[in-house]
Design a binder for these strands. Sequence first.
DNA 1: TTTTAAATTAAGTTGACACTTAATTAAGTG
DNA 2: CACTTAATTAAGTGTCAACTTAATTTAAAA
Lengths: 105, 105
Amino acid sequence: MIEKVIASLSVPSRREILYLLRDGELTSTAIAEHFEISAPAISQHLKVLQHSGLVAVRKSGTKRYYRIRKEGFKDLKAFIDQFWDDSLIRLKEAAEEEERRNNEP
Amino acid sequence: MIEKVIASLSVPSRREILYLLRDGELTSTAIAEHFEISAPAISQHLKVLQHSGLVAVRKSGTKRYYRIRKEGFKDLKAFIDQFWDDSLIRLKEAAEEEERRNNEP
DNA sequence: TTTTAAATTAAGTTGACACTTAATTAAGTG
DNA sequence: CACTTAATTAAGTGTCAACTTAATTTAAAA
């Protein structure tokens, strides 16, 4: 799923949609009002965000309320943390830095 | 920079390169051996990863040793954490869930 | 100084995808 | 039942970037 999650986030408009949804759920139209691009474009973005698991939707009459789906970020967070706070990396880095200092005085 | 970081991560080959570099620095050729795509393609990926700040390079003779640049992940991590553990979101979610239960019995 | 090795730059091709407008579905409301 | 509102699906277009092969740079070895 991380594939789809990252692809979702790679488009500025979609990140902007996520920012908007941080303050609570919004309808497709309400979201579209914040953009210059067309309503269908927003709709397409929302579909991508749903398929990647980053947003969820709730229907009520003709309206559809979109909201952040927190768990959708889980895998990506884990991916990043591998590089961010993996102690193995820190050890490797330190060892190599040490070696560099020794070999190129 | 988050723009470039996410773009970097959106390509499977580049994520694979990062995985390889977790175990320590590697030359361009050593990296290329793990892939089916051409050496120039790898070189281009490495350039993208450098420009996004996710990898750094060290020259020694004709060889170039690439390594993870941990700090490069910082901004993206912060971005994700906004959605992952922002207490405001949790409160909003809880409030809305509550409201949903009340309005649609 | 020729040759080899390591890696890149150059140039061109192709497929994906973020848009657009137009048409369609679905659910109220007069 | 028309009409409106909310949102989507359909279909087509243009751009961009991930590849390719060929050529070039740079440093070391023979």
